[in-house]
Design a protein around this nucleic acid. Structure first.
Lengths: 346, 346
DNA sequence: TGGCACGACTATATCGATTTAGTACCGTGC
DNA sequence: GCACGGTACTAAATCGATATAGTCGTGCCA
């Protein structure tokens, strides 16, 4: 094992200057066809791969994206990551993954680190409504930004990718309504931490349509906090008959709280999750949930980041809606999977 | 937002040469105390951060490590990642994460990418016994290498980190033996794909000690394959009364297969997992498992990679054992958590 | 007093790629 | 026969840091 070959070696072997080798390898024009082949062959023979640091230093772009997840404990993000990486590998791009662990401080640290690394773009499932996105825009103005699971106001000028949250909520509420539930709790982050406003908004709309009083339950969305908050909820004089959670992961917290308070899920308390994790059907009872294809979301995310998606909405054309709320840029389809955690109200 | 400040700007502001600024910022000696303070102050005022690409280009080291996971679908690796990142952030190090998805080809791709990125070290939970580790050593000889969950022969000269696999297996076997089980199946990868030899070895030892016939079940460890293999196992004329899996994740596959074949877990078939994922206690029935602190493993991994662990075994001193099998370098403690997926044999 | 070592600091080369600013050559039109 | 334009290619500058090889002044010893 000697040294990795450099472009100079490739050039020498092909009998040309490094400049021309660079041109050929980067597919730029102004290189004779025969010479181009010779250069590519030389590179292949030597197993040449450009030093990404040298390239990044010179070009200012690093062929990498940051992916900053608000809470990597939630396994749905594994699928998102897998989908994004899958897309990335084929385009020789590196994805840097970081976990904010529900901490603004950590989120900030990671963003700064990403900026120092000159990542070409950032996809972020933000902890809060948008401060961190502003920080990013400050640090790397003009770089593509994708927000995941975030529809807070002020995010109109970034690319928004996520599940079809409005439809998801609607499916859950309608399902519970049909089972006779009239008092439905809806787990959501407190407003100051809420990134995905569409969810709550749609919940309130759905309730209004059905003539139900909306019952949002504000809680930090880590497992311990959810458990605590739901326990308190079940202890209240009038506990709800059903709960909609934002993920299967938080549904676990609801299960634990219910068990602790002697509620039987599916009988005394109906629960609807989101994501359909592999474990959802193995829980006791199996979880009714809103399925989404996390890998597809990951791929969509990468495509948006890299600009691979053909035609972005564009500046001139306001699109169809022109309604109050801007549609998100990519809404991953969702579907309801009914299992035994939801049942008729008793 | 102007440009990021460069070291030249810091130097100018402090009235020194870039060289001296670099010395001061990297804490090297040969800088007057007063001047050092002035330089540090200037850097702080400008919010200077070194361009990692320039630095990496010059020094050949990138302040980053690769972490290559054989199967990121298994949520235990989330904890490992979180632990490693936690340790990394405080030392301004970046960890590149990749998922081999049980594919040698993908594993190879990621290793090559890591090598091209000049990562300073690699931690890998290899898909197979060790080919990929060889590839890595070829590409970056001398760089620190940590293998996770791998004890195959030929890995003696790399740093081995993992759960205390031998003790874990022993705990599981003893527990089942006490419940009366005499026919225990042991899920493990086929030999040509097996990275962690200690597990199987210890299983055979434990069985020998107890006078049981060992019953290893060789199967690829992805969910679908496990299901299929276990279904076949349950269809056999003499199905085992208990199964030990390598993770809670694969235990899910066993649950699904059991359910499909009409076996009730905990009654007709006892199951012991590994890891104690958050969902383990929510499954139906709650899963008996071997708990391990994944974050601690992640931290240990990082410490070993970065050389932060005080004293490595060293070359001269063969240590205590001198036995047949080398002890691994870090064995994370494990403990048995008994739930209802294991019961007396009927 | 001359020489030498040492501390504090600077000028310049260097890492490996891309970019910029050419150069050499050839064919064409007038 | 000469200017012109274009193609194929090259030399040198550049990105931002660190490494190497000095320079300069001071103090100490012989």
């Amino acid at each position: 094992m000697t040294q990795r070959p450099k472009i100079k070696d490739v050039a020498r072997r092909a009998g040309v200057s490094p400049t021309l080798a660079s041109f050929a390898l980067n597919g730029r024009e102004g290189v004779g066809e025969e010479t181009r082949q010779r250069i590519l062959a030389a590179a292949a023979e030597l197993g040449y791969r450009a030093n990404p640091y040298a390239r990044a230093l010179r070009t200012g772009s690093s062929n990498s994206f940051g992916l900053l997840i608000r809470n990597l404990s939630n396994p749905i993000f594994l699928d998102v990551i897998a989908g994004a990486q899958e897309a990335a590998v084929s385009s020789e791009t590196t994805i840097l993954i970081a976990d904010a662990d529900y901490s603004f401080e950590r989120e900030r640290q990671h963003i700064e680190r990403f900026a120092a690394h000159h990542v070409d773009g950032l996809a972020i499932a933000p902890v809060g409504p948008g401060e961190s996105v502003d920080l990013w825009r400050d640090l790397r103005p003009g770089a593509p930004t994708v927000v995941l699971y975030a529809t807070a106001p002020g995010l109109d000028d970034v690319i928004r990718v996520g599940p079809d949250a409005r439809r998801a909520v609607r499916l859950a509420v309608d399902h519970l309504y049909e089972l006779g539930h009239r008092d439905i709790a809806f787990l959501t982050a407190p407003r100051e931490l809420m990134a995905d406003h569409d969810r709550l908004d749609e919940f309130e709309l759905a309730c209004a349509d059905l003539g139900l009083p909306p019952r949002p339950v504000f809680t930090p969305l880590n497992l311990a906090a959810v458990m605590e908050r739901v326990t308190a909820l079940l202890d209240s004089p009038t506990p709800p008959t059903a709960v909609i959670t934002n993920s299967d992961y938080t549904a676990h917290g609801v299960y634990l709280a219910a068990r602790e308070r002697g509620f039987t899920v599916g009988r005394d308390l109906s629960v609807v999750g989101h994501d359909d994790l592999p474990t959802a059907e193995l829980l006791d009872p199996p979880l009714t949930t809103i399925r989404m294809d996390g890998r597809a979301l990951g791929r969509a995310l990468f495509d948006r980041l890299s600009g691979a998606d053909a035609d972005r909405a564009g500046d001139g054309d306001p699109g169809d809606g022109a309604g109050r709320t801007e549609p998100v840029d990519h809404a991953e389809p969702v579907e309801l999977v009914v299992r035994r955690s939801t049942g008729p109200v008793r």
